[in-house]
């Protein structure tokens, strides 16, 4: 089996790491960590659900579910940033972003792209917005200097995980349909990179959750 395929196939196993940490530290997962816990739950549910659809019901195209997943994912990540940034940026910015994104995702699914193809526009927009929010979060940390040891805080690790995953995947999401329809080898490589970034994000989130309530 090629290494790229190996990474892509076994990457979801890395999800078990943040899931385990979240279960161990569940009583400390409050405030901005609550949406992160839900996000891990959503990922776990999606993985199981897609496998059940694929192997149990032989559904070949699970992309319609990705459209719903994208909206849920964006909402949960925005919830995380809303709690963290509420006293730093205007309170209404993030709720407006979520509402706007939801409308755009619906319009895209109905009028622009069909639900059976990769939702490149919402995925790209989602990545772009999350990268922006993560940069604002980094800026807030840098300006407020709330923590003496930033490397021992949940927000730093989780925010780094989101920045890495969404900035790395931005171009992949933009070119998603093109990659799926064109060269097989290139497509495999691209999705292996996606899986690699997913592994890193899961590790970063696990570290972040591990530091819950240990913040200085």
């Amino acid at each position: 089996m090629r290494i790229s395929t190996l990474i892509a196939v076994y990457a979801p196993i890395s999800l078990l790491l943040p899931v385990t940490v979240a279960l161990v530290r569940k009583k400390y997962l409050v405030n901005e960590l609550r949406p992160v816990a839900f996000y891990i739950g959503l990922q776990l549910f999606t993985e199981i659900f897609i496998r059940v659809l694929s192997f149990g019901f032989h559904v070949r195209n699970s992309l319609p579910f990705l459209h719903i997943y994208t909206v849920l994912e964006f909402s949960l990540i925005c919830w995380f940033y809303y709690v963290f940034l509420k006293d730093f940026i205007h309170k209404n910015i993030i709720p407006v972003l979520v509402t706007g994104f939801l409308l755009f995702a619906i319009i895209n699914g109905v009028f622009i792209q069909t639900v059976f193809e990769f939702n490149t526009y919402p995925r790209s927009l989602e990545s772009l917005l999350i990268v922006c929010l993560s940069l604002i979060a980094f800026y807030k940390m840098f300006q407020t200097l709330e923590y003496v040891r930033i490397d021992r805080t949940s927000v730093f690790w989780i925010n780094s995980g989101f920045t890495l995953y969404f900035s790395g995947n931005l171009f992949l999401f933009v070119l998603g349909n093109l990659l799926l329809s064109k060269d097989q080898e290139l497509s495999r490589m691209a999705w292996a990179i996606h899986a690699g970034l997913d592994i890193f994000m899961n590790i970063f989130i696990a570290i972040g959750l591990w530091w819950s309530r240990r913040e200085q």
Partner: peptide, 23 residues
Amino acid sequence: MFLFAGGIILFLNSYQKRILSNQ
């Protein structure tokens, strides 16, 4: 990846410098 790692290291370094300077 390298860019990201570099960025994070730079951020951590600058952050610690600012913390030290504040202290």
